[in-house]
Computed example of a mutant assay.
Amino acid sequence: MSFFKKLKEKITGTNETVTEKFKDGLSKTRNQFTSKVNDLVARFRVIDEEFFEELEELLLQADVGFETVMELIDQLKLEVKRKNMKDTAGIQSVISEKLVEIYEAGEKMDSKLNIQADGLTVILMVGVNGVGKTTTIGKLSARLMAEGKTVMLAAGDTFRAGAIEQLVVWGERAGVEVIRQSEGSDPAAVMYDAIRAAKNRHVDVLICDTAGRLQNKVNLMKELEKVHRIISNEVEGAPHEVLLALDATTGQNALVQAQTFKEATNVTGIVLTKLDGTAKGGIVLAIRNKLKIPVKFVGLGEGMDDLQPFDPEKYVYGLFADGLEQETEASDTIDK
């Protein structure tokens, strides 16, 4: 049985709405990447070195990342040799299988949020301006509320004009309270007030917004270190999550941002925003393989419920949905 068919059976019966969100959200990448792979398979009846060179180029164009591409190509060559594959029929199924294996290989990473069973959970949200950080906070708040959690927000981005008001708007949409001070206030003081308020009101989760002044790395680090220190002093083991919001449309530039924030604070997970707006969805694999940080959520649209927990199998389904469905239809026809 091909990996496509196994994948289809595995995701059948799971939340079909979420599966469709991955399919729709990755349509731009699929239309670009998969269509080119289809063309490549059509042109090369035989798997040879030239085929692998062109496939390598396609993967790089999808922003899978150089190191990940080299690893994938090496694994594909071994699998082709092991299965004694002479032609390109079925190669997409092998590619998809190896993509899942690469994401899940190595150090096991928990993609679930570290929500405390008792007491206050503090989530620190970091990322440069313009990546959709505030929008992500609003959507994450709504998701946690739907799960039965009480949520409060801390408006720690006191540097950017309009940031506090923007968070208040999202707080109102999600139905959560926002603790804030005036523009230009000390972010650490905002965090302190928010933690005290969250404790007094027995809130389950406090999500803290921060400024994203990447242009001055020293100031960014000092500010994040101070905020981190205040939070850890007030709540044992906090912050329980440091989520880095990255804009998927920036491709490899997202890796540079991630490295800077990783140096500034202990990033525990990535939220990849605007995945539906890019044809370079391979950045998910580059982040996982290069930075060794799990992608915990992906933005698959503009709706409140379009922030979804990342699932590597649904991700690969989204990349290869057309080929998977074609193979399933062909298999069903043969069975009849």
Rank of each mutant, 00 (worst) to 15 (best):
G212P: 02
A330S: 08
K10Y: 10
N114C: 01
L275D: 13
T333D: 14
G106I: 00
L275N: 07
T328Y: 07
I231G: 04
G130Q: 14
F66M: 02
L124M: 15
D157K: 07
D63S: 04
R43P: 02
I287D: 01
R180N: 00
G237C: 10
I287K: 03
T265E: 15
A117H: 07
L76T: 13
A330W: 05
F66L: 07
F22T: 13
I230N: 09
K336M: 14
D157A: 02
M145H: 01
N253H: 03
E107K: 04
T121N: 04
V151P: 06
N114I: 05
G106P: 06
T121Y: 04
T328P: 01
T210I: 12
R143T: 01
T328W: 13
A197H: 06
K77Y: 05
V242L: 07
A42C: 06
T12S: 15
N219I: 04
F33K: 01
I123N: 09
A174V: 08
G162N: 13
V131R: 07
D311R: 12
G130R: 15
L140Q: 02
L291F: 03
V168C: 14
T328K: 11
L291S: 02
E223T: 08
D209K: 07
M304W: 00
N289T: 06
D322M: 13
R196G: 05
A248K: 03
T268K: 15
D87A: 15
